[in-house]
Design a protein around this nucleic acid. Sequence first.
DNA 1: GCTTGCCTGGACCATGTGGTCCTAAGCACC
DNA 2: GGTGCTTAGGACCACATGGTCCAGGCAAGC
Lengths: 213, 213
Amino acid sequence: MAAPTNRRRISQRGIATRDRILEAANRLMLVRGVNATTLDDIREASQTSKSQLYHHFADKQELVRALVRYRGALVLQRERAGLERLRSFSGLVRWRNALVQANSLNNGKYGCGLGSMTLELSDQDEQARSALSETFAAWERLISDGLHRMRDGGLLRQDADPEKLATGLMAALQGGYLLANAAHDVAPMEVALDMALEHIKSFLVQPSEEPTR
Amino acid sequence: MAAPTNRRRISQRGIATRDRILEAANRLMLVRGVNATTLDDIREASQTSKSQLYHHFADKQELVRALVRYRGALVLQRERAGLERLRSFSGLVRWRNALVQANSLNNGKYGCGLGSMTLELSDQDEQARSALSETFAAWERLISDGLHRMRDGGLLRQDADPEKLATGLMAALQGGYLLANAAHDVAPMEVALDMALEHIKSFLVQPSEEPTR
DNA sequence: GCTTGCCTGGACCATGTGGTCCTAAGCACC
DNA sequence: GGTGCTTAGGACCACATGGTCCAGGCAAGC
Protein backbone atom coordinates (compact mmCIF):
# COMPACT_ATOMS: atom_id res chain seq x y z
CA MET A 1 0.00 0.00 0.00
CA ALA A 2 2.53 2.56 1.13
CA ALA A 3 4.07 3.90 -2.02
CA PRO A 4 7.08 6.09 -1.24
CA THR A 5 6.30 9.38 -2.89
CA ASN A 6 9.90 10.37 -3.48
CA ARG A 7 13.20 8.60 -3.89
CA ARG A 8 14.04 8.77 -0.20
CA ARG A 9 15.35 5.67 1.40
CA ILE A 10 12.58 4.07 3.41
CA SER A 11 12.79 1.25 5.89
CA GLN A 12 10.35 -1.48 6.77
CA ARG A 13 9.77 0.27 10.04
CA GLY A 14 8.94 3.49 8.25
CA ILE A 15 6.51 1.74 5.96
CA ALA A 16 4.82 0.12 8.93
CA THR A 17 4.41 3.48 10.63
CA ARG A 18 3.03 5.10 7.51
CA ASP A 19 0.51 2.29 7.15
CA ARG A 20 -0.45 2.57 10.79
CA ILE A 21 -1.19 6.24 10.28
CA LEU A 22 -3.24 5.61 7.17
CA GLU A 23 -5.12 2.80 8.82
CA ALA A 24 -5.98 4.98 11.81
CA ALA A 25 -7.01 7.87 9.58
CA ASN A 26 -9.15 5.48 7.59
CA ARG A 27 -10.92 4.21 10.67
CA LEU A 28 -11.48 7.57 12.33
CA MET A 29 -12.43 9.52 9.26
CA LEU A 30 -14.98 6.93 8.26
CA VAL A 31 -17.02 7.47 11.39
CA ARG A 32 -16.33 11.15 12.13
CA GLY A 33 -15.80 12.51 8.67
CA VAL A 34 -12.66 14.02 7.27
CA ASN A 35 -12.91 17.55 8.59
CA ALA A 36 -14.07 16.51 12.02
CA THR A 37 -11.06 14.27 12.55
CA THR A 38 -8.01 16.02 13.97
CA LEU A 39 -4.40 15.12 13.50
CA ASP A 40 -4.13 14.59 17.23
CA ASP A 41 -6.87 11.99 17.03
CA ILE A 42 -4.95 10.20 14.33
CA ARG A 43 -1.66 10.53 16.16
CA GLU A 44 -3.15 9.04 19.27
CA ALA A 45 -5.03 6.24 17.52
CA SER A 46 -1.98 5.26 15.49
CA GLN A 47 0.43 5.42 18.43
CA THR A 48 2.73 7.78 16.61
CA SER A 49 3.88 11.34 17.10
CA LYS A 50 3.41 14.62 15.37
CA SER A 51 6.79 14.52 13.71
CA GLN A 52 6.01 11.17 12.16
CA LEU A 53 2.80 12.46 10.67
CA TYR A 54 4.71 15.29 9.08
CA HIS A 55 7.55 13.04 8.14
CA HIS A 56 5.33 10.86 6.01
CA PHE A 57 2.84 13.47 4.81
CA ALA A 58 3.46 17.08 3.88
CA ASP A 59 0.28 18.29 5.56
CA LYS A 60 -3.25 17.23 6.37
CA GLN A 61 -4.39 17.67 2.81
CA GLU A 62 -1.70 15.29 1.60
CA LEU A 63 -2.71 12.78 4.24
CA VAL A 64 -6.29 13.01 3.07
CA ARG A 65 -5.23 12.55 -0.51
CA ALA A 66 -3.20 9.52 0.46
CA LEU A 67 -6.24 8.22 2.28
CA VAL A 68 -8.33 8.65 -0.84
CA ARG A 69 -5.85 6.45 -2.71
CA TYR A 70 -5.64 4.01 0.18
CA ARG A 71 -9.39 3.56 0.38
CA GLY A 72 -9.71 3.45 -3.35
CA ALA A 73 -7.21 0.62 -3.50
CA LEU A 74 -8.96 -1.21 -0.67
CA VAL A 75 -12.37 -0.94 -2.26
CA LEU A 76 -11.18 -1.88 -5.71
CA GLN A 77 -9.29 -4.84 -4.31
CA ARG A 78 -12.36 -6.06 -2.45
CA GLU A 79 -14.62 -5.46 -5.43
CA ARG A 80 -12.23 -7.09 -7.85
CA ALA A 81 -12.42 -10.21 -5.76
CA GLY A 82 -16.19 -10.18 -5.92
CA LEU A 83 -16.70 -9.10 -9.50
CA GLU A 84 -13.76 -10.42 -11.46
CA ARG A 85 -15.41 -13.67 -12.35
CA LEU A 86 -18.93 -12.37 -12.59
CA ARG A 87 -20.71 -14.21 -15.40
CA SER A 88 -24.28 -14.70 -14.24
CA PHE A 89 -27.17 -12.87 -12.71
CA SER A 90 -26.92 -14.97 -9.58
CA GLY A 91 -23.36 -13.71 -9.24
CA LEU A 92 -24.73 -10.17 -9.08
CA VAL A 93 -27.21 -11.24 -6.45
CA ARG A 94 -24.42 -12.72 -4.36
CA TRP A 95 -22.47 -9.48 -4.76
CA ARG A 96 -25.51 -7.50 -3.63
CA ASN A 97 -26.03 -9.76 -0.64
CA ALA A 98 -22.45 -9.38 0.50
CA LEU A 99 -22.66 -5.57 0.42
CA VAL A 100 -25.99 -5.53 2.20
CA GLN A 101 -24.79 -7.90 4.86
CA ALA A 102 -21.65 -5.89 5.49
CA ASN A 103 -23.64 -2.70 5.83
CA SER A 104 -26.27 -4.27 8.02
CA LEU A 105 -23.61 -5.13 10.58
CA ASN A 106 -23.58 -1.49 11.63
CA ASN A 107 -27.24 -0.76 10.90
CA GLY A 108 -26.54 1.26 7.81
CA LYS A 109 -24.16 3.63 9.56
CA TYR A 110 -20.98 5.11 8.01
CA GLY A 111 -21.85 4.07 4.48
CA CYS A 112 -19.36 3.65 1.67
CA GLY A 113 -15.83 4.78 2.37
CA LEU A 114 -15.64 6.46 -1.00
CA GLY A 115 -19.09 7.98 -1.10
CA SER A 116 -18.74 9.48 2.34
CA MET A 117 -15.60 11.35 1.36
CA THR A 118 -16.98 12.49 -1.94
CA LEU A 119 -19.49 15.03 -0.75
CA GLU A 120 -17.06 16.40 1.78
CA LEU A 121 -14.06 16.69 -0.51
CA SER A 122 -15.25 17.19 -4.03
CA ASP A 123 -15.94 20.89 -3.64
CA GLN A 124 -12.87 21.46 -1.54
CA ASP A 125 -9.97 19.57 -3.07
CA GLU A 126 -9.96 19.21 -6.80
CA GLN A 127 -7.22 16.59 -6.76
CA ALA A 128 -9.08 14.40 -4.29
CA ARG A 129 -12.24 14.83 -6.31
CA SER A 130 -10.70 13.63 -9.53
CA ALA A 131 -9.07 10.68 -7.78
CA LEU A 132 -12.43 9.70 -6.33
CA SER A 133 -14.07 10.13 -9.68
CA GLU A 134 -11.53 7.83 -11.27
CA THR A 135 -11.98 5.25 -8.56
CA PHE A 136 -15.72 5.26 -9.12
CA ALA A 137 -15.08 4.85 -12.82
CA ALA A 138 -12.79 1.87 -12.20
CA TRP A 139 -15.36 0.35 -9.89
CA GLU A 140 -18.09 0.77 -12.48
CA ARG A 141 -15.78 -0.79 -15.02
CA LEU A 142 -15.49 -3.91 -12.87
CA ILE A 143 -19.25 -4.15 -13.03
CA SER A 144 -19.62 -3.31 -16.68
CA ASP A 145 -16.90 -5.81 -17.60
CA GLY A 146 -18.94 -8.48 -15.88
CA LEU A 147 -22.05 -7.36 -17.71
CA HIS A 148 -20.12 -7.46 -20.97
CA ARG A 149 -19.16 -11.05 -20.24
CA MET A 150 -22.79 -11.83 -19.55
CA ARG A 151 -23.82 -10.23 -22.80
CA ASP A 152 -21.09 -12.00 -24.76
CA GLY A 153 -22.17 -15.24 -23.11
CA GLY A 154 -25.67 -14.75 -24.44
CA LEU A 155 -27.27 -14.05 -21.08
CA LEU A 156 -27.94 -10.39 -21.70
CA ARG A 157 -29.71 -9.06 -24.73
CA GLN A 158 -27.61 -7.22 -27.28
CA ASP A 159 -29.42 -3.95 -26.67
CA ALA A 160 -28.28 -3.92 -23.03
CA ASP A 161 -25.78 -1.13 -22.38
CA PRO A 162 -23.32 -2.44 -19.77
CA GLU A 163 -21.84 0.98 -19.05
CA LYS A 164 -25.17 2.62 -18.34
CA LEU A 165 -26.36 -0.36 -16.35
CA ALA A 166 -23.19 -0.20 -14.27
CA THR A 167 -23.61 3.53 -13.65
CA GLY A 168 -27.21 2.99 -12.62
CA LEU A 169 -26.25 0.20 -10.29
CA MET A 170 -23.49 2.29 -8.74
CA ALA A 171 -25.87 5.20 -8.23
CA ALA A 172 -28.39 2.90 -6.60
CA LEU A 173 -25.65 1.55 -4.37
CA GLN A 174 -24.39 4.97 -3.32
CA GLY A 175 -27.86 6.39 -2.90
CA GLY A 176 -28.79 3.31 -0.93
CA TYR A 177 -25.79 3.81 1.33
CA LEU A 178 -26.81 7.42 1.89
CA LEU A 179 -30.43 6.69 2.72
CA ALA A 180 -29.41 3.77 4.90
CA ASN A 181 -27.04 6.05 6.73
CA ALA A 182 -29.74 8.66 7.28
CA ALA A 183 -32.23 6.07 8.45
CA HIS A 184 -29.72 3.96 10.37
CA ASP A 185 -31.34 1.01 8.67
CA VAL A 186 -30.18 -1.07 5.72
CA ALA A 187 -33.67 -1.44 4.25
CA PRO A 188 -33.50 1.43 1.74
CA MET A 189 -30.18 0.16 0.47
CA GLU A 190 -31.75 -3.22 -0.19
CA VAL A 191 -34.67 -1.66 -2.01
CA ALA A 192 -32.36 0.46 -4.12
CA LEU A 193 -30.10 -2.41 -5.09
CA ASP A 194 -33.06 -4.64 -5.85
CA MET A 195 -34.46 -1.99 -8.14
CA ALA A 196 -31.17 -1.81 -10.04
CA LEU A 197 -30.91 -5.58 -10.25
CA GLU A 198 -34.49 -5.81 -11.43
CA HIS A 199 -33.64 -3.33 -14.12
CA ILE A 200 -30.67 -5.40 -15.24
CA LYS A 201 -32.83 -8.48 -15.07
CA SER A 202 -35.18 -6.94 -17.59
CA PHE A 203 -32.35 -7.24 -20.09
CA LEU A 204 -31.84 -10.94 -19.48
CA VAL A 205 -32.49 -13.15 -22.49
CA GLN A 206 -34.90 -15.35 -20.53
CA PRO A 207 -36.36 -12.81 -18.09
CA SER A 208 -37.42 -15.15 -15.30
CA GLU A 209 -34.13 -16.97 -14.92
CA GLU A 210 -33.98 -16.73 -11.15
CA PRO A 211 -35.47 -14.69 -8.32
CA THR A 212 -33.75 -11.50 -7.14
CA ARG A 213 -32.93 -12.86 -3.71
CA MET B 1 -39.49 30.12 7.85
CA ALA B 2 -38.10 31.49 11.09
CA ALA B 3 -39.97 29.78 13.86
CA PRO B 4 -39.20 31.37 17.22
CA THR B 5 -37.95 28.55 19.35
CA ASN B 6 -39.15 29.99 22.64
CA ARG B 7 -41.83 32.38 23.81
CA ARG B 8 -39.51 35.41 23.65
CA ARG B 9 -40.85 38.53 22.12
CA ILE B 10 -39.44 38.84 18.63
CA SER B 11 -39.62 41.70 16.19
CA GLN B 12 -39.83 41.76 12.45
CA ARG B 13 -36.29 43.04 12.38
CA GLY B 14 -35.14 40.12 14.48
CA ILE B 15 -36.85 37.65 12.19
CA ALA B 16 -35.24 39.26 9.18
CA THR B 17 -31.79 38.97 10.77
CA ARG B 18 -32.37 35.37 11.69
CA ASP B 19 -33.43 34.57 8.15
CA ARG B 20 -30.42 36.38 6.75
CA ILE B 21 -28.17 34.23 8.89
CA LEU B 22 -29.88 31.02 7.84
CA GLU B 23 -29.82 32.02 4.21
CA ALA B 24 -26.09 32.74 4.37
CA ALA B 25 -25.38 29.51 6.22
CA ASN B 26 -27.41 27.66 3.63
CA ARG B 27 -25.45 29.15 0.78
CA LEU B 28 -22.00 28.73 2.28
CA MET B 29 -22.46 25.28 3.74
CA LEU B 30 -23.79 23.95 0.48
CA VAL B 31 -20.54 24.63 -1.32
CA ARG B 32 -18.00 24.23 1.51
CA GLY B 33 -19.69 21.69 3.68
CA VAL B 34 -20.91 22.16 7.21
CA ASN B 35 -17.72 21.62 9.14
CA ALA B 36 -15.59 23.64 6.78
CA THR B 37 -17.79 26.71 7.13
CA THR B 38 -16.92 28.97 10.04
CA LEU B 39 -19.19 31.25 11.99
CA ASP B 40 -17.09 34.17 10.86
CA ASP B 41 -17.79 33.24 7.25
CA ILE B 42 -21.49 33.25 8.01
CA ARG B 43 -21.30 36.45 10.00
CA GLU B 44 -19.56 38.21 7.15
CA ALA B 45 -21.80 36.82 4.42
CA SER B 46 -24.95 37.69 6.31
CA GLN B 47 -23.79 41.18 7.34
CA THR B 48 -24.44 40.48 10.98
CA SER B 49 -22.32 40.25 14.09
CA LYS B 50 -21.22 37.55 16.47
CA SER B 51 -23.68 38.54 19.13
CA GLN B 52 -26.56 38.23 16.69
CA LEU B 53 -25.52 34.72 15.79
CA TYR B 54 -25.55 33.80 19.43
CA HIS B 55 -28.67 35.75 20.08
CA HIS B 56 -30.63 33.71 17.58
CA PHE B 57 -28.87 30.37 18.00
CA ALA B 58 -27.48 28.80 21.13
CA ASP B 59 -24.36 27.53 19.39
CA LYS B 60 -23.12 26.28 16.05
CA GLN B 61 -24.81 22.94 16.47
CA GLU B 62 -28.16 24.64 16.97
CA LEU B 63 -27.55 26.75 13.89
CA VAL B 64 -26.83 23.61 11.92
CA ARG B 65 -29.96 21.96 13.21
CA ALA B 66 -31.98 25.01 12.25
CA LEU B 67 -30.38 24.84 8.83
CA VAL B 68 -31.44 21.22 8.50
CA ARG B 69 -35.02 22.27 9.12
CA TYR B 70 -34.67 25.29 6.86
CA ARG B 71 -33.36 23.25 3.95
CA GLY B 72 -35.83 20.50 4.58
CA ALA B 73 -38.68 22.99 4.37
CA LEU B 74 -37.24 24.52 1.20
CA VAL B 75 -36.82 21.19 -0.53
CA LEU B 76 -40.22 19.90 0.49
CA GLN B 77 -41.84 23.12 -0.62
CA ARG B 78 -40.14 22.93 -4.00
CA GLU B 79 -40.92 19.25 -4.38
CA ARG B 80 -44.49 19.65 -3.29
CA ALA B 81 -44.97 22.11 -6.11
CA GLY B 82 -43.60 19.63 -8.60
CA LEU B 83 -45.15 16.45 -7.29
CA GLU B 84 -48.43 17.41 -5.71
CA ARG B 85 -50.45 16.94 -8.85
CA LEU B 86 -48.43 14.10 -10.29
CA ARG B 87 -50.80 11.71 -12.06
CA SER B 88 -48.95 10.45 -15.09
CA PHE B 89 -45.64 9.03 -16.17
CA SER B 90 -44.93 12.10 -18.24
CA GLY B 91 -45.27 14.11 -15.05
CA LEU B 92 -42.44 12.08 -13.57
CA VAL B 93 -40.37 12.74 -16.65
CA ARG B 94 -40.95 16.47 -16.31
CA TRP B 95 -39.95 16.24 -12.66
CA ARG B 96 -36.77 14.40 -13.65
CA ASN B 97 -35.95 16.96 -16.29
CA ALA B 98 -36.33 19.85 -13.89
CA LEU B 99 -33.92 18.27 -11.40
CA VAL B 100 -31.40 17.41 -14.06
CA GLN B 101 -31.53 20.85 -15.55
CA ALA B 102 -31.06 22.53 -12.19
CA ASN B 103 -28.08 20.34 -11.43
CA SER B 104 -26.56 20.78 -14.85
CA LEU B 105 -26.38 24.53 -14.28
CA ASN B 106 -23.42 23.96 -11.99
CA ASN B 107 -22.04 20.93 -13.77
CA GLY B 108 -23.13 18.46 -11.15
CA LYS B 109 -21.39 20.31 -8.32
CA TYR B 110 -22.75 20.68 -4.77
CA GLY B 111 -25.45 18.06 -5.20
CA CYS B 112 -28.57 17.85 -3.10
CA GLY B 113 -28.76 20.14 -0.10
CA LEU B 114 -30.08 17.33 2.05
CA GLY B 115 -27.86 14.55 0.80
CA SER B 116 -24.72 16.61 1.18
CA MET B 117 -25.44 17.21 4.86
CA THR B 118 -26.43 13.65 5.54
CA LEU B 119 -23.06 11.98 5.30
CA GLU B 120 -21.43 14.76 7.26
CA LEU B 121 -23.95 14.95 10.07
CA SER B 122 -25.56 11.58 10.49
CA ASP B 123 -22.72 10.08 12.49
CA GLN B 124 -22.12 13.25 14.41
CA ASP B 125 -25.45 14.69 15.48
CA GLU B 126 -28.22 12.24 16.17
CA GLN B 127 -30.88 14.93 16.22
CA ALA B 128 -29.86 16.28 12.83
CA ARG B 129 -29.75 12.75 11.47
CA SER B 130 -33.27 11.91 12.51
CA ALA B 131 -34.56 15.22 11.14
CA LEU B 132 -32.89 14.48 7.81
CA SER B 133 -34.27 10.99 7.83
CA GLU B 134 -37.77 12.31 8.37
CA THR B 135 -37.38 14.83 5.60
CA PHE B 136 -36.31 12.12 3.21
CA ALA B 137 -39.31 10.10 4.28
CA ALA B 138 -41.63 13.03 3.62
CA TRP B 139 -40.03 13.60 0.25
CA GLU B 140 -40.48 9.95 -0.66
CA ARG B 141 -44.06 10.20 0.45
CA LEU B 142 -44.67 12.98 -2.05
CA ILE B 143 -43.46 10.61 -4.71
CA SER B 144 -45.27 7.55 -3.47
CA ASP B 145 -48.50 9.52 -3.13
CA GLY B 146 -48.22 10.40 -6.79
CA LEU B 147 -47.56 6.78 -7.66
CA HIS B 148 -50.57 5.78 -5.60
CA ARG B 149 -52.68 8.19 -7.62
CA MET B 150 -51.30 6.66 -10.80
CA ARG B 151 -52.12 3.20 -9.56
CA ASP B 152 -55.61 4.19 -8.46
CA GLY B 153 -56.10 5.82 -11.82
CA GLY B 154 -55.31 2.55 -13.54
CA LEU B 155 -51.98 3.65 -14.98
CA LEU B 156 -49.84 1.45 -12.75
CA ARG B 157 -50.38 -2.24 -12.26
CA GLN B 158 -51.79 -3.37 -8.93
CA ASP B 159 -48.63 -5.24 -8.05
CA ALA B 160 -46.60 -2.05 -8.17
CA ASP B 161 -45.38 -1.04 -4.71
CA PRO B 162 -45.40 2.79 -4.60
CA GLU B 163 -43.34 2.96 -1.41
CA LYS B 164 -40.56 0.78 -2.72
CA LEU B 165 -40.60 2.49 -6.08
CA ALA B 166 -40.31 5.85 -4.34
CA THR B 167 -37.41 4.67 -2.21
CA GLY B 168 -35.64 3.33 -5.28
CA LEU B 169 -36.19 6.55 -7.14
CA MET B 170 -34.90 8.58 -4.22
CA ALA B 171 -31.81 6.40 -3.95
CA ALA B 172 -31.16 6.77 -7.66
CA LEU B 173 -31.56 10.52 -7.30
CA GLN B 174 -29.20 10.79 -4.35
CA GLY B 175 -26.68 8.40 -5.82
CA GLY B 176 -26.92 10.30 -9.07
CA TYR B 177 -26.23 13.55 -7.26
CA LEU B 178 -23.20 12.00 -5.60
CA LEU B 179 -21.70 10.56 -8.76
CA ALA B 180 -22.44 13.77 -10.63
CA ASN B 181 -20.69 15.69 -7.91
CA ALA B 182 -17.65 13.43 -8.08
CA ALA B 183 -17.50 13.62 -11.85
CA HIS B 184 -18.50 17.27 -12.09
CA ASP B 185 -20.85 16.17 -14.79
CA VAL B 186 -24.61 15.60 -14.71
CA ALA B 187 -24.48 12.54 -16.95
CA PRO B 188 -24.45 9.87 -14.22
CA MET B 189 -27.40 11.53 -12.54
CA GLU B 190 -29.35 11.32 -15.78
CA VAL B 191 -28.48 7.67 -16.23
CA ALA B 192 -29.48 6.88 -12.66
CA LEU B 193 -32.80 8.68 -12.87
CA ASP B 194 -33.56 7.10 -16.22
CA MET B 195 -32.92 3.68 -14.76
CA ALA B 196 -35.36 4.36 -11.93
CA LEU B 197 -37.96 5.75 -14.31
CA GLU B 198 -37.53 2.79 -16.61
CA HIS B 199 -38.14 0.56 -13.64
CA ILE B 200 -41.32 2.42 -12.77
CA LYS B 201 -42.31 2.28 -16.41
CA SER B 202 -42.12 -1.50 -16.30
CA PHE B 203 -45.11 -1.34 -13.96
CA LEU B 204 -47.20 0.75 -16.33
CA VAL B 205 -50.34 -0.94 -17.57
CA GLN B 206 -49.47 -0.27 -21.21
CA PRO B 207 -45.66 -0.39 -21.03
CA SER B 208 -44.85 1.73 -24.05
CA GLU B 209 -47.05 4.66 -23.16
CA GLU B 210 -44.42 7.28 -23.85
CA PRO B 211 -40.67 7.60 -24.20
CA THR B 212 -38.49 8.27 -21.17
CA ARG B 213 -37.37 11.67 -22.33
C1' DG C 1 -41.67 60.48 26.36
C1' DC C 2 -40.27 56.89 29.11
C1' DT C 3 -39.50 52.37 30.52
C1' DT C 4 -38.73 47.73 29.21
C1' DG C 5 -36.50 44.44 26.94
C1' DC C 6 -35.24 42.78 22.43
C1' DC C 7 -31.65 43.78 18.96
C1' DT C 8 -27.01 45.06 17.46
C1' DG C 9 -21.93 46.00 17.18
C1' DG C 10 -17.68 44.55 18.05
C1' DA C 11 -13.91 43.94 21.32
C1' DC C 12 -12.32 40.19 23.80
C1' DC C 13 -11.15 35.42 25.47
C1' DA C 14 -9.88 30.32 25.75
C1' DT C 15 -8.68 26.70 23.44
C1' DG C 16 -8.32 23.36 19.77
C1' DT C 17 -5.68 22.51 15.84
C1' DG C 18 -2.49 22.46 12.09
C1' DG C 19 2.16 22.92 11.74
C1' DT C 20 7.42 23.58 13.30
C1' DC C 21 11.57 22.28 15.39
C1' DC C 22 15.17 20.39 18.10
C1' DT C 23 17.09 16.41 20.03
C1' DA C 24 18.02 11.71 20.23
C1' DA C 25 17.63 6.95 19.10
C1' DG C 26 17.80 3.23 15.55
C1' DC C 27 19.75 1.25 11.59
C1' DA C 28 22.58 0.22 7.36
C1' DC C 29 26.64 0.36 5.14
C1' DC C 30 31.47 0.89 5.05
C1' DG D 1 32.92 1.50 15.51
C1' DG D 2 32.20 5.57 12.74
C1' DT D 3 29.16 8.01 9.46
C1' DG D 4 25.03 9.51 7.63
C1' DC D 5 20.78 8.54 6.83
C1' DT D 6 15.84 7.47 8.60
C1' DT D 7 12.73 7.10 12.45
C1' DA D 8 11.00 8.80 16.65
C1' DG D 9 9.46 11.80 20.76
C1' DG D 10 7.34 15.63 22.19
C1' DA D 11 7.70 20.51 23.49
C1' DC D 12 6.44 24.48 21.32
C1' DC D 13 4.13 28.06 18.33
C1' DA D 14 0.72 30.92 15.66
C1' DC D 15 -3.57 31.44 14.68
C1' DA D 16 -8.29 30.32 13.43
C1' DT D 17 -12.46 29.51 15.55
C1' DG D 18 -16.17 28.86 18.71
C1' DG D 19 -17.93 31.35 22.27
C1' DT D 20 -18.57 35.50 25.91
C1' DC D 21 -19.66 40.03 27.29
C1' DC D 22 -20.99 44.65 27.70
C1' DA D 23 -22.47 48.96 26.23
C1' DG D 24 -25.60 51.23 23.49
C1' DG D 25 -29.51 51.50 19.96
C1' DC D 26 -34.10 50.80 18.75
C1' DA D 27 -39.06 49.72 18.96
C1' DA D 28 -43.29 49.06 21.27
C1' DG D 29 -46.55 49.51 24.91
C1' DC D 30 -48.00 52.47 28.70
